[in-house]
Each structure stands twice: as structure tokens, then as C-alpha cells.
Simulated assay, not measured.
Amino acid sequence: MTHKVTTVWKEKMIFESDNPGGYSFNLGQTEENNDPYKPLRPKAVMLSSLAACSGLDIVSLAEKMRITFNDLKIKVEGELTEEHPKTYHTVSVDYHFYGKDLDESKINKAIALSVDKYCGVMEMFRQFAQVKTKTHFHNH
């Protein structure tokens, strides 16, 4: 399978990119707080992609494994090198599960499957960064 995207320069430091699903979004950087383009920073989008990839695995596995939770938040933090080209050298992925009577054992199994087997973005990150994961359970 091949993914293709087209990215077009809009103006200043703003680019618009499509994706295979057909939706477009803006990338770049701006000094303006109310920039109408609301560009996403390219490196930060990589962290969001990592969270979404693993999250998609976990939600899919949860359905198959009959795991229930009310909410899932994935917080990803990347530490950049000091020298150019600045790349992530360490990435922390924190999974936060919210719900009543969370089945920690099953949830941990779903996370392990995502981290070790299914998440292609996680595997790509491992090629250039140390990836640390941690799980937090918020029972209420």
C-alpha cells in the first residue's frame, strides 16, 4: 500500500496538505495568535500521529476484548536534540484511562499489543528515539 499526499505553499510560513482520506489541514508556523490558518507544527503533528495510531489500536482491541472505559487521553512529549537537524531523541507516551472498575490487566494487554506489534508509527519512532510508555488508571 502506498500513501500519497500533496502539500502546497499558501503564504508566508503556511502550507496546506491533504491526506489519503481527502481532508486537508494546515502546517507551518506563525507568530500570530489568531492566525486564520491555525497551522499545526510539523514535528508536533508527528507526536499527534503517534498518539492517534496507538489509540486507534487500543480502541479497536478494547472492542474485541470487551474492555470498557469512559475516556482515553494519550499525552505524548518529545525531547528534541540541541543541534540541527533537531530530531526527537526521547519520546514519552502516557496513556490515561478513565472509568469505573477499569480492567487494568486487559487494558495493559491491549497497550502492549499496540506498542509491541500493531502501531507502525510507534515502530517508526523507535528507529530514531527512545520511546517510553506509562499507563495511568483513573477509576471513578
Rank of each mutant, 00 (worst) to 15 (best):
K64P: 03
M65Y: 15
M65Q: 12
R66I: 05
R66L: 11
I67S: 04
I67R: 03
T68R: 11
N70M: 08
N70W: 01
N70L: 11
N70Q: 12
L72I: 08
L72C: 07
K73V: 12
I74D: 03
I74V: 14
I74F: 03
K75P: 00
E77A: 08
G78C: 08
E79I: 08
T81Y: 07
E82Q: 09
E82P: 04
H84M: 13
P85L: 02
P85S: 12
P85A: 03
T87I: 15
T87V: 15
Y88F: 15
Y88P: 00
H89R: 11
H89C: 10
H89T: 03
T90V: 08
V91D: 00
V91T: 06
V91P: 00
V91N: 00
S92E: 07
S92W: 14
S92N: 14
D94S: 10
D94F: 07
D94C: 13
Y95L: 05
H96Q: 13
H96R: 09
F97D: 01
F97W: 07
F97P: 00
Y98Q: 00
G99Y: 04
G99C: 04
G99M: 07
K100E: 15
D101H: 11
D101M: 10
D101G: 13
D101N: 15
L102Q: 05
L102N: 07
D103P: 01
D103W: 06
S105Y: 12
I107F: 05
N108C: 13
N108F: 05
K109P: 00
K109C: 04
A110T: 00
I111A: 01
A112N: 14
L113Y: 08
L113I: 15
S114W: 05
V115G: 00
V115K: 12
D116W: 07
K117M: 06
K117G: 00
Y118M: 05
Y118P: 01
C119K: 02
C119N: 01
C119F: 02
C119L: 07
C119Y: 00
G120N: 07
G120W: 04
G120E: 09
M122A: 09
E123V: 05
E123P: 01
R126E: 08
R126H: 11
R126T: 02
Q127D: 06
Q127K: 12
F128W: 05
F128L: 05
F128S: 13
F128H: 10
F128N: 05
F128M: 14
F128D: 09
A129N: 01
Q130M: 10
Q130S: 10
T133L: 09
T133S: 09
